[in-house]
């Protein structure tokens, strides 16, 4: 009913627009403008493409050029705190000063190497954790009674809609020395000394698995739900045992879902800042945190930019992979 009303309203508005367009058309300067626009290839179609295109170009792609530019500048105590690459010296000569010192600094100082490797390690282990926990969940959901599926799906999505920051914060209360887990375990008499979990890599793993689990489950579920059950029946009919059916039919067919899920977890986890900052210890080095500290604590914008470029280089391959799978899915009309 309401949609019908919406349509009627839209239609009335568009009808108002038609005579207006006809009147405008009688007005020569408008006609000339349209003719010029057409000559330049500016049709309505081009305009529709251009609007989102220009926005993303300006606010997503161009900024990376500035990151590169500043990564090649020198740090200054000034506003903004970096040197200019291009200068007019003695008013006549144009000099370009490229400073690759920031990158050399990244290579020389093993803090960055450690952070780099540690981020990769933490992201990899957390991704595996998500997969091991998420796959059975997604599988069980896809095989559940259809009436239950939507409810289960909603239950997976629900945490994703509530504040990420607050959900990470909740784990502090659970993992700390006098937190929920230690209280329960000590109350039951299983341990008499609290287990130190907060400010360890373990807490970071838990935090990442917890926050990114829905990102793993959703693509897996979408894939597994589409799986034609008659394939499994056919395999069973041909004499294949259930476990073997899973490994020879279900698992290979769900690879696109697995790849999408893993990329959705791994790539952002590498650059994660909030989780190591809240749950990790001072020695939990992650590249996102290093970047944050270079920027906010040391106010060294050029080094922060150099770190960003380094992370991007690390992530180029997984991002391309993700894009590839994403567009393959889109082509398949899913």
């Amino acid at each position: 009913m309401s949609r019908e009303g919406f349509v009627a309203m839209g239609e009335r508005m568009m009808h108002g627009a038609d005579p207006l367009a006809r009147m405008l058309w009688r007005f020569p300067p408008y006609r000339w403008c349209v003719a010029v626009a057409r000559r330049l290839g500016l049709t309505g179609r081009t305009a529709v493409i251009a609007i989102p295109y220009l926005w993303l170009l300006l606010f997503f792609l161009v900024p990376f050029a500035f990151v590169l530019k500043i990564a090649l500048a020198e740090a200054l105590i000034a506003r903004p705190p970096y040197s200019s690459l291009i200068e007019w010296s003695e008013d006549t000569y144009l000099t370009i000063k490229l400073n690759i010192g920031n990158f050399l600094f990244l290579i020389e100082d093993d803090l960055y190497w450690k952070a780099y490797l540690n981020s990769g390690k933490i992201a990899l282990i957390s991704t595996l954790g998500c997969l091991l926990l998420g796959y059975p969940m997604a599988y069980a959901m896809a095989r559940a009674n259809p009436a239950w599926r939507n409810v289960l799906l909603m239950l997976v999505i629900l945490p994703f809609w509530t504040s990420f920051l607050l959900r990470v914060y909740a784990w502090i209360g659970i993992l700390k020395n006098n937190g929920l887990i230690n209280n329960v375990l000590m109350g039951l008499g299983i341990i008499d000394q609290p287990i130190v979990m907060m400010q360890t890599d373990f807490a970071v793993y838990v935090g990442i698995v917890y926050t990114y689990l829905p990102f793993m489950i959703l693509p897996l579920y979408a894939n597994l739900e589409r799986l034609d059950v008659t394939l499994l029946e056919a395999a069973a009919d041909l004499g294949c045992r259930p476990t073997k059916v899973f490994f020879t039919i279900t698992l290979p067919l769900s690879i696109p879902g697995i790849v999408a899920g893993c990329m959705l977890v791994f790539i952002p986890a590498v650059g994660e800042f909030v989780i190591p900052a809240l749950l990790g210890g001072p020695d939990t080095l992650m590249i996102g945190r290093v970047l944050w500290d270079e920027f906010f604590a040391n106010r060294d914008w050029p080094v922060a930019s150099a770190v960003a470029i380094a992370v991007l280089l690390l992530l180029v391959v997984p991002i391309m992979l993700f894009q590839h799978f994403q567009s393959a899915e889109a082509e398949a009309g899913v």
Binding site: F59, F66, W292, S305, F322
Partner: peptide, 25 residues
């Protein structure tokens, strides 16, 4: 192809990088 890239990359781009690059812009 570029537009496809620019609409899917932000989904996975680490926030620290997006934040820093926009600030510099």
């Amino acid at each position: 192809l570029l537009l496809t890239g620019m609409t899917t990359a932000p989904l996975v781009m680490p926030e620290v990088i997006t934040g820093l690059s926009l600030l510099l812009l």
